[in-house]
Write a protein that binds this DNA or RNA. Structure first.
Length: 888
RNA sequence: GGAGAUAUAGCUCAGCCGGGAUGAGCGUUCGCCUCACACGCGAGAGGUCGUGGGUUCGAGCCCCACUGUCUCCACCA
């Protein structure tokens, strides 16, 4: 039996209760089930340091919609959740926490630090997970994984060893990005280029053995200490003489040669470039070509080292200041020019990155990239929207080797050992104790850990048990869709794809659904520094998770950014309330009515009409969702529920709900009411099901209240098109009625008739079939058109001449409002209508008189246009006849 | 320096295969507390679809150029 429902929807008291119920019932669980087809999404693992933000909310809402939908469609739907250890973010956080407690990381040592880190993760690592639950996420939490758990760590080690054995992982001294604050190396993807205002310092390098100078321009004068040459373009006539000569390097006692290299752009700056192989990627290459010495002048913390002579110990920027000053004193500083240039910064701490030569571990990318590129070309992998494959391909085609070692403790330690006795390098799946070469037992493990993305790259299969041949791996892999923001295509998507091809031979998923950023109301990125971030949890508290989900999906196309606003939240909440109240209405009226399935012959035209509508809606929505047009699908559901179902159908059906005097036991009335109630309930259930992936809580609450024997909408079947619900012949009848009602309302409004004032309505049509339709729908006019009495007739007999008229394509309606009618106003209104119709007719005629249109356009298009013309001609005739009558 | 996205109603955005902008929400105007809902109901107003060309019987949609905005990539010292 229907329960008492409150007048406004109150999400807070409902959501937690339902989520707990779902958990208890294990509805989120997915298991290997050969009888069903699998559908799998791996959740992008949030950082354990994370707090739920709008980006997560959007990302997880989209995934939850897909998963709930597929689950209802009968797939064994696995949403594989988990969290990421986020090596650098977490290490920084823990280091700071320790610092606050007065503990120094270095003193604590590796072991002690890791102990603290694990403690931290146990305490805070699940916070983000509980926040995701507030959103309604139906992930299989029993399968929750962590990038540093035993299985994932095993996968990491296996992959490392395999790539090493294949020669794809190597150790080398190369120029890498170094963050002096975090004191670790970084991959290219972690470096952000920021435009900064800087200077060009023009400095003179005296030529040895003769008068004169070479003028160079630099943005980083302190790197002068590491210069080992000055380069000019070989074709530069100005400097031809100088090539091979030596220069005195200012502020040092070193002399460096002038070399010729095509890398130098004659047109840029002075045409002379100082070469610092140890601190500039280009110079590094130049240095290699000319066998130049590489002088590292920086310590890991960004201070000048012993190679910097008297500047040793100074911070790099301090040294810059001092050196510029001294150059000025010596007359070697020509000028300082303002210059904006791009500076590489660390994406986590925004410290300016210093290029340095360091011995690091790298992954060779050329071979690995190939199948990942191929995947797009063969269509094994596709992006939604499609254009992101360009971004993806461009990155892959220009990819550099991936620096994977990090000078951090929190993470997967590199499984490499060296033997101090013989220098042998051992990479092994098991921790070695003895050197296989010399038998030495003093093996030392590499201190570094792996880039955090190395483990996330394996996420789609490591979470399923790989490298073991688990039933899950067999069944759920490859996964289906990956949902993520365009901002991490480089970091993550690409690396998952090539890792998966390399390890499993398959793409990890067939589709990548890309979404944009959630911006603030003004279109700005939400950020801590701007303080414009909106906490999704706060929004959920105020409006409910359903309303938040609705806001995030409404009117948003894949890949596009969206703006969040409380105005949108209001609209979403209003919709939830609308659904709530429609359901309340239906339940109230169902009270005591038998809603067992009725037979087709009991259904009224409007019942058939709305059933047909919801039937088609299901097909359309499914189609849109198949194409990942979730925003469009939602829009259709929204429009159907609000406009068609609530504003039309429910209103149409009201006269059948309330018995008039003496009708209480009338068999025809009771049967009609029963049919209406069954239809209301049926259409509501279908609508709720379609809406459920978007608004899981409210739909569940209503669904269960509506039918006590159903335990959850979550496990109910997704609506499919039903043959027996396609009453295509009734649509035009109902549309005819709607059109007539609208016309009556319009006239009444135009004439300023108070809504409470009922008036008789005469409907005139020469067509018998049309009259029949209106006869059947008489009740609607009273309910929807404020009619006191309705007469359907073939001619105008008995209708007062001064009645106001409303014209539709099929019929004319007359409303006697003698005391209110203003002939001039009525004429003006009809003339306006006449003008509109003229325009319409001109448009149709324009097309239909065009021979090229007639000869080239498809036949159905022409027929359509002819039908329109006929309809407007008919309308025009009626309007003009009425005008003539009034002007008489 | 490359690449991409975007330009539609006052605002925020949809617009599938080229075929009347039939768009939606918010805002706005007028009228309504009509026994599900004022978080509501009814009726309106409001758009040269950035500019200029082209293809087509027909272009918001396809092609070219331009302009504005945004984003990503990139080792010009």
């Amino acid at each position: 039996m229907a329960k008492e429902l409150s007048k406004t929807y109150n999400p807070t008291e409902i959501e937690d209760r339902l989520y707990q119920k779902w958990l208890n019932k294990k509805y989120f669980a997915a298991n290997v089930n050969k009888a069903k087809k699998p559908f799998t999404i791996v959740m992008p693992p949030p950082n354990i340091t994370g707090q739920l933000h709008m980006g997560h909310a959007l990302d997880n809402t989209l995934q939850d919609i897909l998963i709930r939908w597929k689950r209802m469609q009968g797939f064994e739907a696995l949403w594989q959740p988990g969290t990421d250890h986020a090596s650098i973010a977490t290490e920084v956080k823990i280091t700071n926490m320790l610092k606050d407690k007065g503990i120094d990381k270095a003193e604590l040592g590796r072991e002690g630090f890791l102990k603290e880190a694990w403690k931290w993760r146990a305490e805070y690592g699940s916070r983000i997970v509980s926040q995701l639950k507030k959103l309604g996420s139906s992930a299989d939490w029993d399968r929750e994984r962590f990038t540093m758990d035993e299985g994932c760590s095993k996968a990491v080690r296996e992959v490392f060893c395999r790539l090493y054995e294949k020669g794809y992982i190597y150790q080398g001294s190369r120029i890498i990005n170094w963050c002096p604050v975090c004191q670790t190396s970084l991959s290219d993807a972690e470096v952000e280029h920021e435009e900064q205002h800087g200077h060009f310092w023009h400095i003179l390098y005296p030529i040895v053995g003769q008068d004169g100078f070479v003028e160079i321009a630099t943005t980083r004068p302190e790197t002068l200490l590491g210069d080992t040459a000055v380069a000019v373009n070989p074709d530069d006539e100005r400097y031809k003489e100088l090539v091979g000569k030596m220069l005195k390097l200012p502020l040092t006692d070193r002399e460096i040669p002038v070399i010729a290299d095509a890398y130098v752009d004659k047109e840029f700056g002075t045409g002379c470039v100082k070469i610092t192989p140890a601190h500039d990627p280009n110079d590094f290459e130049v240095g290699k070509r000319h066998n130049l010495e590489e002088i590292n002048i920086l310590n890991d913390d960004g201070t000048i080292n012993e190679n910097g002579g008297k500047y040793c110990g100074m911070d790099r920027y301090e040294a810059r200041k001092v050196m510029v000053e001294e150059l000025k004193e010596q007359g070697l500083l020509v000028k300082v020019v303002d210059h904006t240039h791009n500076v590489g910064t660390h994406d986590r701490c925004h410290t300016t990155v210093e290029p340095m030569i360091k011995k690091q571990w790298f992954v060779r990318m050329d071979e690995l990239a190939k199948p990942a590129i191929e995947a797009i070309k063969t269509g094994e992998l596709k992006f939604v929207p499609e254009h992101f494959d360009k971004t993806y391909l461009h990155w892959l085609e220009t990819i550099h080797d991936w620096c994977i070692s990090r000078q951090l403790w929190w993470g997967h330690r590199i499984p490499a050992w060296t033997c101090p006795d013989c220098g042998e390098l051992i990479v092994s799946r098991e921790d070695p104790t003895v050197c296989p070469k010399c038998g030495g037992t003093r093996l030392v493990q590499d201190e570094d850990s792996l880039d955090t993305w190395f483990s996330s790259a394996l996420w789609p299969f490591s979470t399923l048990g790989w490298p073991e041949k688990t039933p899950e791996m067999e069944y759920f892999f490859p996964t289906d869709v990956l949902v993520t923001g365009y901002d991490i295509i480089f970091f993550w998507v690409i690396r998952m794809v090539f890792s998966s091809y390399e390890q499993t031979g398959k793409s990890p998923f067939h589709t990548v659904l890309i979404h944009g950023l959630v911006r603030d109301e003004l279109g700005r990125k939400m950020s801590k520094s701007l303080g414009n971030g909106i906490d999704p949890l706060e929004v959920i508290d105020r409006y409910g998770a359903d309303a938040l989900r609705l806001t995030l999906v409404t009117g948003n196309a894949p890949g596009n950014d969206m703006r969040f606003s409380y105005t949108k939240m209001d609209a979403s909440r209003n919709f939830a309330n609308k659904v709530w109240n429609a359901s309340r209405f239906i339940m109230m009226n169902m009270e005591g009515v038998d809603t067992a399935k009725v037979t087709t012959d009991m259904l009224a035209d409007e019942d058939k009409w709305i059933l047909t509508k919801v039937n088609h809606l299901a097909a359309e929505v499914t189609d849109n969702m198949d194409n990942y047009d979730l925003g469009i699908a939602l829009q259709k559901i929204y429009d159907f529920i609000w406009d068609e179902f609530c504003d039309w159908y429910i209103e149409m059906v009201k006269p059948r709900m309330y018995a008039r005097e003496g009708q209480e036991d009338d068999a025809a009335f009771l049967q009609s009411r029963r049919a209406a109630c069954w239809t209301l309930k049926t259409v509501l259930i279908q609508s709720l099901k379609l809406l459920h992936p978007y608004m899981p809580f409210i739909t569940e609450e209503i669904f269960c209240n509506l039918q006590d024997d159903e335990e959850s909408i979550m496990v109910s079947a997704w609506p499919v098109e039903k043959q027996e619900w396609s009453f295509d012949d009734v649509e035009h009848k109902v549309e005819m009625m709607k059109e007539a009602v609208r016309a009556i309302r319009q006239v009444r409004t135009d004439m300023n008739v108070a809504p409470g004032k009922k008036a008789a309505v005469f409907v005139v049509s020469e067509n018998e079939a049309v009259r029949k339709v209106f006869e059947d729908g008489k009740a609607f006019f009273a309910a929807l058109g404020s009619a006191s009495h309705v007469a359907i007739q073939a001619d105008k007999a008995g209708i007062p001449d001064d009645a106001v008229s409303a014209v539709t394509a099929n019929a004319s309606m007359y409303i006697p409002l003698a005391e209110l009618i203003d002939i001039d106003k009525e004429i003006a209104r009809l003339e306006k209508e006449e003008k509109r119709l003229k325009g319409e007719l001109a448009r149709s005629a324009g097309m239909l008189r065009n021979e090229k249109f007639l000869s080239k356009a498809p036949a159905d298009k022409i027929a359509e246009e002819k039908a329109k013309e006929a309809k407007y001609t008919q309308l025009m005739e009626q309007v003009q006849a009425r005008l003539a009558q009034l002007k008489k």
